Simulated assay, not measured.
Amino acid sequence: MDVVEFHRRASEDFVRLVALVGPDQWGDPTPCSEWDVRELVNHVVGEELWTVPLLAGRTIEDIGDSLDGDLLGDDPASAASHAARAAQNSVTEPVLRGATVQLSYGEEQAAEYVYQLAADHLVHGWDLAVSIGAPAHLDPEVVDGIATWFKDREDLYRGGGAIGARLEGFSDPTASLLGAFGRDPGWTPAHAAVGRLGAAFGLGDVDAIMAEMTSDCVFESTSPAPDGTLVVGAEAVREQWQQLFGQTDGALFETEESVVLGDRAIVRWRFSWNEADGQRGHVRGVDVLRLRDGKVAEKLSYVKG
């Protein structure tokens, strides 16, 4: 298959997934932590709308801000379908004649640009599928084609900050490609909840912390030894965090690693503070979490030493 076919298949699969988004799912989290479902779809539709004028020879300056903002309107599925069809119709002729296109980093071959589009549709299609609970079955021929193309470009993408750190240890071709793009093939919405909780602790934001916990949440602290103290209910748990951040000078939580398996998660963290002598003290520990309905219902904390 050639890149035009890769693009057609990947974009059609994306349109199919957009049609499956439920009315209450547009605000749900995605593997792209900065985007919810609607923002993810809007990004891809925006890429499709840019494709037509760029391949017709217009520049980014020509287009300006005409494609900024919300592009989905009241009918995202139709917006995605129409944009994909227009993009598909625009790619064949420029690729066949070896045309070039003006991108943000300069002049590029049209075929290379369409490879970029196909890859983005493929990976974001997986993002969308796992976000809405749809089957995340990527076309194996498109996966192989994009993997071959991406092999020599991965370092360039990562060096430019376009993708995260590579995840290793996968034998399945789809999982390997997702890992190369910095995706965890096992991602679920629970990963997003754990990430938001870690970010809230990193900021010391008690309101944000409690927004990620259930009303009947349970917290088991690290002291006194050997069993800690069990705190039950959101109000009592909130008091624990208010005391911790309010009474600890320079309190800082940093997430070192998190692993999510179904409704359970393990988070390794480092907690540091300002000592009286001006030095930083710290301890390292783990949380064992239980999740329910996208929130943390149980947080059992353990610390080294």
Rank of each mutant, 00 (worst) to 15 (best):
L128P: 04
A129C: 11
V143A: 09
F150T: 08
K151W: 06
K151L: 13
D152H: 08
D155E: 13
L156E: 15
G159T: 08
G160Q: 13
G160V: 10
G161A: 12
A162W: 11
S171I: 07
S171Y: 09
T174I: 06
S176A: 15
L177M: 12
L178C: 05
G179T: 02
G182E: 04
G182H: 01
P185N: 11
G186W: 05
T188I: 09
T188G: 05
R196A: 15
R196L: 08
A199S: 14
A200C: 10
A200K: 06
D205R: 02
V206N: 00
A208H: 01
M210N: 02
A211T: 05
T214Q: 08
C217T: 14
C217Q: 04
F219K: 06
S221R: 01
S221I: 01
T222D: 13
S223E: 14
P224T: 07
A225G: 00
T229P: 07
V232M: 09
G233W: 03
E235F: 02
A236I: 02
V237Q: 02
R238C: 01
E239S: 11
L244S: 10
G246D: 04
G246C: 08
G250R: 02
G250E: 00
S258T: 14
L261A: 15
G262D: 08
R264F: 09
R264V: 10
I266K: 08
R268K: 13
R268W: 14
